[in-house]
Write a protein that binds this DNA or RNA. Structure first.
Length: 413
RNA sequence: CGGGGCGUGGUGUCAACGGUAGCACGAGUGAUUUGGGAUCAUUUAGACAGGGUUCGAAUCCCUGCGCCCCGACCA
């Protein structure tokens, strides 16, 4: 894409009403637009990152057999009453609305109830299980306090997956398969090193712990205790001697850290299926409860976490897998050669942002650093005289002169 | 939801005593310039909303709305 065509502009200064680093950088660089507190729109650059993250999540969910679908945002009250989650006293962050005739509706904050309701049309035998369904969708939660830019919003993008199993054994196998897929997602996003499986409160209806995936960062809301050798952690909310013993963790090997919850997985037992009257018949024709699991990944929150983690004083530094473009081609001076190189890169399937604007070199460099595309390619009289183009990684300080073919080798790998 | 802070052009501003709304960035035009946000000229555009006090309100008071921070909350 030609940068002269990109309608968003970078800003030198961050808006005064944002303190969170992720929001400041993403707004300055033109990735997101703040609509209101806790509600952000994705501009073209931001949407590209969002879609790249979704793609990775999809691939890994599909690998473990997940079937993608999309549920609705508008929710009928009845199914939520069956599980006793409609009442504001029980779930206080509902957004609710009404039909013209006065019928109350909910605006989806999670989808256990509607999923069970929909699945119930098809599921009736032990032969139907196990299976997993997921969606990537906007969720709406009336948070009392939105904060930290993309880290805690009222409208956000989430991947939620649900598994249906005939018994605990089958459920456990599904569950661990998905946990493994979660690690692959974080690995591919460049967060593998700093993301820990963290034991947390499983909720009132299960004796088991749930698992959170906590990415270590100082801006995190959660306090966790990390066992770096075992690569696991325990959330402060369940940090006591009894639980440590149960998990085989030793207090003296744990380090206190701050984390952001970038995903979680829950054992739902048969709470929702029973409440919504969904059962299956076993081999003997006897009615049995269905065991569910649910699994979330905060897709938009991940953008915030990555922006917090991968940045320097000049701007963002996107991991290659999710960067809005692979290469940022800068034309210094109005050199015709740059246009040719742009065409050639595009023809080879490289996603390129081409800074073809008639502006100062310094401004182009500053914008390039701020936007944070992993590979910067400079074309100028100087580079051409030196024998080609000047290539620099955003996370390195040294540049190299090379030919376009050499660049293609690097970018295509 | 409790506490605190704050609302001035598109952006920023610990700019302005209750008395002419200033500066910088951006954007437009023209010129010069072209390897780290360059320079000159010129133009553009602003007081969150409503009420009150006052000869006069960006400034003081009230109400509402919005934003940020701390805490509580967070399937």
């Amino acid at each position: 894409m030609k940068q002269s065509q990109l309608f968003t502009r970078t800003k030198k200064e961050a808006p005064s009403d944002e303190v969170a680093k992720n929001a400041q950088l993403l707004i300055r660089a033109g990735f997101i637009h703040k609509e209101m507190a806790g509600v952000y729109a994705y501009m073209p650059l931001g949407l590209r990152v969002l879609e790249n993250i979704k793609k990775i999540v999809r691939e890994e969910m599909n690998t473990v057999g997940g079937q993608e679908l999309m549920m609705t945002t508008l929710q009928p009250k009845e199914i939520w009453e069956k599980t006793d989650r409609w009442d504001d006293a029980k779930v206080d962050n509902w957004f609710k609305t009404k039909l013209a005739n006065g019928t109350e509706l909910g605006v989806g904050l999670t989808h256990e109830e509607p999923i069970v309701d929909a699945v119930g049309n098809y599921l009736s035998s032990y032969k139907d299980m196990p299976f997993a369904v997921y969606q990537i969708q906007n969720k709406f939660r009336n948070e009392k306090r939105a904060k930290s830019g993309l880290l805690r919003g009222r409208e956000f993008v989430m991947k939620d997956m649900y598994t249906f199993s005939r018994d605990q054994e089958q459920h456990k196998a599904e569950y661990e398969k998905i946990v493994a897929a979660y690690f692959r997602v974080y690995e591919r996003l460049g967060l593998g090193e700093v993301t820990f499986r963290t034991y947390a409160d499983g909720g009132i209806f299960t004796p088991q712990f749930s698992d959170e995936f906590q990415t270590l960062t100082e801006v995190g809301e959660d306090t966790i205790y990390v066992d770096e050798k075992k690569k696991i952690a325990i959330n402060e909310e369940i940090f006591n001697d009894e639980n440590l013993a149960k998990l085989g963790l030793k207090k003296e090997e744990l380090v206190q850290k701050k984390g952001v919850e970038v995903g979680n997985t829950f054992h739902l037992e048969s709470k929702y299926t029973d409440a919504l009257d969904l059962y299956y018949n076993d081999e003997k024709g006897e009615k049995q409860s269905i065991i569910m699991g649910c699994y979330g990944i905060g897709v938009s929150r991940l953008i915030g976490v990555i922006a917090e983690l991968f940045a320097d004083d000049k701007g963002l530094i996107w991991p290659e897998n999710i960067a809005p473009f692979s290469a940022h081609l800068l034309n210094l001076g109005q050199d015709q050669e740059a246009e040719k190189i742009y065409t050639e890169l595009c023809a080879n399937g490289i996603e390129v942002l081409f800074d073809d604007r008639d502006s100062q070199a310094g401004e182009k460099f500053a914008d390039s650093d701020l936007i944070g595309i992993p590979t910067r390619v400079v074309v100028s009289k100087k580079s051409l005289a030196a024998g080609g183009i000047e290539v620099k990684k955003r996370n390195e300080s040294e540049s190299k002169i090379m030919t376009v073919n050499e660049l293609l080798q690097i970018l295509k790998k």
